[in-house]
Design a protein around this nucleic acid. Structure first.
Length: 375
RNA sequence: GGACGGGUGGGUGAGUGGCUAAAACCAGCAGACUGUAAAUCUGCCGCUCCUUGCGGGCUACGGAGGUUCGAAUCCUCCCCCGUCCA
């Protein structure tokens, strides 16, 4: 299979410009992927996502396995058809749920025993099952099951999780090979190792040895200081082959995105634009804006006067504040729309900056704006 | 005119002698949120003072007075509101 990732340019900062081909269209990288855990980016319709220019979104293997069930999705023609999404989908494996549902699961080398948060039923998740589910869903990019650990964690604990994640990656690759149609789906490995640089290097080397079409860096942004996130991400990224896409999982704040890109990351995803939008936190070039603040009660300006999104073109802060306080359904919709646009637009600007060799300028401008705050 | 029931902090509404500046919820104010168990969660929410502390002072449960070491809670009178009987 010919490599589908094309590296167009590498910036002196380490930032990369590229494109990833999938059965459902091209992903221009560096890319931001909105999170649609349950086959829905909360608050937005697929039509809105298309209009915003989303090229790829995330869905979650574990959640869709529980509900509506991967076999049902398969019968209904696969996830793209089921949710009427024509572009690319990357499914997370359920490894994050190992972390986030720590109270509801028991982990062993064989796999993870989950107690469903929906009905309490037990489910045994294995690397092989994660492959099977993602195959049934028909994701363009499938992630291997990994063990995402908490922060802080001891070196020994991180080493164990790294070891297990490697073993699972090996099994995942084997299970994936049995499917026999690598043109339909790409499988990405996940580097673990906590915040320990030696483990990260080791984990990356191991995964590269197994040879995957793409590599993710997982287990970060789980509570550690941001500088550490960046250091470890860069440490891991540096070990990964230049010709393969690199996906930093679960990041980040908008002002940090260019830093991750400069660390050599090609893909990112994060719930911040969607979740924070629902919670009234709007991202702008000048930093966060909490729309419920009394200061905006009579403010006729848009969220961000320099933003070209459908929300900023039409609605005032005063109105958006009213919607939020009144608990109107439009509030999360409009807030999420703005935030997702903002993330995508930031990535667009980052790609432009790499192309024109001005990423450093972009970064310092961004930093200056954030320090200055809202005008 | 009579018989019951009721008047509590911005709202609804607990609380029947001290642990009560007074539950809970709502509203309001502020903050958090990083591969989504999140349209969620946290803090503040009578006034005031400062050496910001499980700190001091003041005011407060319709009104006035009383009983008591101590009252939103008990007693008396009055004023409102609701229901029913005349």
């Amino acid at each position: 299979m010919a490599p589908r990732f094309e590296l167009l340019k590498t910036d002196p900062t380490g930032a990369r410009l590229g494109r990833l081909e999938t059965p459902h269209g091209v992903i221009d990288t560096p890319a931001f992927m909105p999170v649609g855990t349950a086959a829905s980016v909360k608050g937005l319709t697929q039509e809105m996502l298309l209009q915003l220019g989303v090229q790829v979104l995330l869905a979650n293997t574990y959640h869709l396995y529980l509900r509506p069930g991967h076999e049902r999705v398969r019968r209904l023609g696969g996830l793209h058809r089921f949710m009427s999404w024509p572009r690319a989908i990357l499914t997370d494996s359920g490894g994050y749920q190992v972390f986030s549902m720590a109270g509801l699961r028991e982990i062993s080398d064989e796999g993870v025993r989950f107690r469903s948060h929906l009905d309490g039923a037990e489910h045994f998740f294995t690397p092989e099952l994660a492959v099977e589910v993602q195959w049934a869903l028909g994701a363009d990019v499938a992630m291997v099951l990994d063990e995402c650990i908490e922060y802080p964690a001891s070196h020994e604990h991180a080493r164990q999780a790294m070891r297990r994640t490697f073993e699972w990656a090996r099994r995942s690759k084997q299970a994936f090979a049995l499917r026999g149609d690598p043109g339909r789906q790409m499988q990405f490995a996940i580097v673990q190792g906590g915040v320990y640089a030696d483990l990260r290097r080791q984990s990356a080397d191991q995964m590269v040895e197994l040879d995957f079409p793409g590599y993710a860096i997982g287990g970060l942004a789980v509570g550690e200081p941001r500088a550490l996130t960046l250091d470890i991400a860069a440490e891991a990224a540096a070990r990964l082959p230049a010709g393969r896409p690199r996906y930093l999982m679960g990041v980040g704040k908008p002002e940090d995105l260019p830093d991750y890109v400069a660390a050599g990351v090609d893909m990112m995803d994060c719930v911040l634009p969607t979740r924070n939008g629902r919670n009234g936190c709007l991202f702008t070039r000048y930093g966060r804006l909490l729309i419920k603040n009394a200061a905006y009660a009579d403010d006729e300006r848009p969220i961000d006067p320099t933003c070209a999104c459908p929300v900023c073109r039409r609605y005032s802060r005063a109105y958006l504040r009213h919607l939020y306080l009144a608990n109107e359904l439009l509030a999360p919709v409009l807030n999420t729309c703005h935030n997702v646009y903002f993330y995508l637009d930031t990535m667009r600007q980052i790609r432009d900056a790499i192309r024109s060799g001005t990423l450093e300028v972009f970064r310092s401008d961004l930093q200056a704006r954030h320090q200055a705050g809202h005008p």
